[in-house]
Design a protein around this nucleic acid. Sequence first.
DNA 1: AATGAATGAGCCTTCATTCAT
DNA 2: GATGAATGAAGGCTCATTCAT
Lengths: 226, 226, 226, 226
Amino acid sequence: MSIKFQPPDDAAQDATRQHLLEAAGEVFAEVGFHSATVREICQRAGANVAAVNYHFRDKDGLYAAVLTESLRLSLKKYPADMGLPPKATPEQRLHAFARSFLWRIFSTGAESRHGRLMAREMVEPSAALDPMVKEHIRPLSDLLMSIVSDLLGDKADPQTIRLCAMSVVSQVVFYHHCRPVLSRLFPSVKFDPVSIDHLADHITRFSLAGIKSAAGKRAPACLPGK
Amino acid sequence: MSIKFQPPDDAAQDATRQHLLEAAGEVFAEVGFHSATVREICQRAGANVAAVNYHFRDKDGLYAAVLTESLRLSLKKYPADMGLPPKATPEQRLHAFARSFLWRIFSTGAESRHGRLMAREMVEPSAALDPMVKEHIRPLSDLLMSIVSDLLGDKADPQTIRLCAMSVVSQVVFYHHCRPVLSRLFPSVKFDPVSIDHLADHITRFSLAGIKSAAGKRAPACLPGK
Amino acid sequence: MSIKFQPPDDAAQDATRQHLLEAAGEVFAEVGFHSATVREICQRAGANVAAVNYHFRDKDGLYAAVLTESLRLSLKKYPADMGLPPKATPEQRLHAFARSFLWRIFSTGAESRHGRLMAREMVEPSAALDPMVKEHIRPLSDLLMSIVSDLLGDKADPQTIRLCAMSVVSQVVFYHHCRPVLSRLFPSVKFDPVSIDHLADHITRFSLAGIKSAAGKRAPACLPGK
Amino acid sequence: MSIKFQPPDDAAQDATRQHLLEAAGEVFAEVGFHSATVREICQRAGANVAAVNYHFRDKDGLYAAVLTESLRLSLKKYPADMGLPPKATPEQRLHAFARSFLWRIFSTGAESRHGRLMAREMVEPSAALDPMVKEHIRPLSDLLMSIVSDLLGDKADPQTIRLCAMSVVSQVVFYHHCRPVLSRLFPSVKFDPVSIDHLADHITRFSLAGIKSAAGKRAPACLPGK
DNA sequence: AATGAATGAGCCTTCATTCAT
DNA sequence: GATGAATGAAGGCTCATTCAT
């Protein structure tokens, strides 16, 4: 009766599983782990209440799967090097890093949940955070620190590298994380693609200057006695 | 019926109310709003199960009260100007702003909950956020923007002021908000008073360079065509 | 409005608790622990589903309370000595022991559940069994063994005492425990008060002969070489 | 598609069926009918989740099959006459009956489950009990009553025969059925082969005396007015 | 013949809240 | 004013069973 060989069996078998992952991503991102109910997720996925238990063992298992999958999708869609040529300057690489990070965080669509999920994870870390840091976040961190190291030059000590790298990342994640306050303080600020690119430019320029300053040895006069 | 005058009713009432606020502050900061149970809070406060509903209408009312109170305590202990003399330079004022903010966020003690409570509020804003922004956060924001404006000079447009101010704040809140990831990436990093002061120095120096760079007109070469 | 001072507050407060105990006794005896549902019990008790949790922590706590209470009621209604005079002969005491045990097990009414509950406990012992053995069953066992010891005379060794005592008890509990098979093998057998007394007589006579035989030293010829 | 003829379908089918019976016997005896899960049984049997429903219609059907099979195995291994010569005395036959019964109940191995399964059946009779009584238990009962009848002599009325037979059986099953209490009252008591044979001796001696006493007409003096 | 993904009913428990006292 | 027993809604999870393949 059926002559289509594609999609393979795996896809057919995993249909419900995928729907659950999709629905759970939405719900977890919207209301968080605790407020999310298995019933709501299954209803959106068009699946039975017991489906979560069958496919993911329990609610925690589903959450862990959602978190991993969302980061995977996000990194796949917005790679950290943004397709730069191999011979790119550190400045270009810094810009690409900030821009891809912002796009990743503010993207709309199925992969957009990653940002909100990670923000929640910061407030209430789950068991799923450890492996995520190891597999995905640390590589990103190392990448940024190598860029910063190139910008600082040979004399940079590890602590300075780390402080500068954190100063870069902080500016990126801030706009996403403190959005509730920002939207109240500056209701006119939007995060459309054009604004996000402007933001990436500002952060890059601001940070390049900061990094160069950190490469110098003398402390500004304003710092008491240092 | 009762002839005992001590302690007077008002004091007793306020005592229970205060105990509830205290206990709720602990519990909310420890496990978050959803996971916190009214029973646990009342038990720690040595009060009846119905005490929360009696004094604060419901759990939400208690949470709002805790949030407001915690910010009030925090600002009282660490004022934004750090007692600077009136004639302080913008650089000194920036340093004081960053340092007081960091101390506020990383303080230990009853007022330390403010940091965690606000972080939660970012992820899941409650009705208590609006008044808090109006009364406390906007003044802080205005203060910072006036400092940045002074540093940028007369020619600065509002957007640049805002972007630079956010770049400053972001570096401060980042260390608190992304702590779960930071402690996994760099387990050796601690947040004792000395480290916090070092951090304030770095952020100030980094930001001063960034602000000066933003005051210039030419975009760095790395930014494509801008 | 209400002028009745009795029952005291305790009784009023424990009304729901008592109803739950009552209803749970019925249900547990009818269908066992696993098949019994908290909903059914609360419904019979006219209480809310959460009442069990409130008064007995959980289903297990309720079960333990039911078990203890049922044995207490049962022993209170049918004391092991049946009100015998202090100077009763060992034979009379044995008869009283068997008769009271049978009545306890076959009693109808609120205290009748004890028999069925204990039978279930034999098949699937719960944590409630240990304290019950210590507080109630061991005293009964000791009482019986002292009676048997008196009947056996001074020369009896502990093992013989124990074997004879078990032979007595076994006949008593058998009729209750194997009732499903008995009612199928001998449908005409009933367990009305008269039949129970006849049974007590038979068991007493049979056991007295058995005990006297055990007091002797020579093994019957049928036992191979012993 | 498949050209392998070994093992033939029938054998394969029977193999799964047999594995299920085996596994179900273990699980039912360990945790009882209610607590046993179809999944656990199928997993131990290396079969599919639906195998039980396929081979035995439902969980109840599997249980009935297990019960019947376990009794069949048990009786096959420990016949009621213990291979006595045809001319054995009633005393010898009584001893053989008690001994084989005890061995049957306390046997270790695949057929040992019978004891526990029957104990559960006493507490919560299932539909499988009726045929078991008809086919297996009644013959055993008739055998015992004929032995007792021989011992009592011609004058014995049916009621006395029945009472004495029950007194014999009760002592046997007691040790198995009340094991949870016995092991708590007398922790030192073990049920190794030697102890079981000693037990059979005691029960036989005790019962022979009881039966002879029941054959007499006069009631003991301790029985009130009878 | 046999599989295993999917079902839906139901269970125990928790929690914020109320109300008579 | 303050208590604490009682409520009812809801949540996560388990389990025997089914059905398309």
